[in-house]
Computed example of a mutant assay.
Amino acid sequence: MRVAVAADHGGFRLKMAVTGWLKEAGVPYDDLGTFSEEAVDYPDQALAVAEAVRSGACDRGILCCGTGIGVSIAANKVPGIRAALCHDTFSARAAREHNDANVLTMGQRVIGPGLAEEIVRVWLSASFQGGRHARRVGKIAQIETKYCRCGVEEEK
């Protein structure tokens, strides 16, 4: 499994803690930025991770910002991405098992590095349970298809 990781300036330190843990755990990852606490726009980092996951270059993604909210909203605009904001291990496990979340988002101003590392560990080790959950994830994909005109120019 390969993981795409990125953060804005508000999540930079949390991203560094997460990548440190990934390296220590032997989990391959691509660090897509940012590389300092200099201000950047979180949608850019969210898009980079979402596109890496959507394209198959990475199997999953992790995004950090101040709260985890902005990157979650932005990543979820990319078709096929199911980004889940998690600040506890119960939600992280459920996001994988029930929602097949392929992107995890967290907030540096909300949780500390120790808890973030535990959330990542739980999220990476959990598997989608399928069954009734697959039907529901399928319905999410149907909503996406209904409202997404991906690659189609708007009619005038």
Rank of each mutant, 00 (worst) to 15 (best):
V5P: 07
N76W: 04
L47G: 01
R13A: 14
G107T: 02
R121N: 15
M1P: 09
L47H: 12
R96S: 07
R132M: 11
A4M: 12
H133T: 08
E117L: 00
I62A: 02
A126Q: 06
L32G: 14
C64S: 12
G26A: 11
S72N: 15
A52N: 06
D41P: 10
F128Q: 05
W123S: 01
C150R: 14
V78M: 12
R109S: 14
K156C: 00
V27M: 09
I140W: 11
D59W: 00
A25K: 15
K15S: 08
V5Q: 04
A46F: 05
V137I: 13
C148T: 15
G66E: 13
S91C: 08
L124R: 04
W21I: 01
E97H: 00
K77D: 07
N99S: 08
G56Q: 00
R149C: 01
R132C: 12
L115N: 01
A116Y: 04
L22R: 06
T145W: 02
T89I: 09
I111T: 03
I81L: 10
M1A: 11
I81R: 14
L115T: 02
P28Y: 03
L47R: 15
G151N: 06
V27Q: 13
V40T: 15
L14A: 06
V103M: 07
E118Q: 15
V137N: 07
H87A: 01
G131A: 13
G107I: 00
V49S: 14
R13T: 09
E51Q: 15
A94F: 08
C65P: 12
L22Q: 07
G107A: 01
V110H: 00
T89N: 04
V40D: 03
V103A: 09
D8P: 05
V78P: 09
I111K: 12
K23M: 09
A134T: 03
A57K: 11
F35V: 14
G26M: 11
A84T: 10
E38P: 00
S36Y: 03
K77I: 01
T89M: 11
T105G: 01
E37H: 03
L85Q: 10
V120D: 07
M16N: 07
Y29D: 05
S127C: 07
D30H: 06
G70K: 12
D31Y: 02
E154G: 10
A94K: 12
A74E: 08
G130M: 11
A50E: 03
L85Y: 09
R2M: 09
R13G: 05
G26K: 04
N102R: 05
I69F: 15
N99G: 02
P113Q: 15
I81S: 05
Q129G: 11
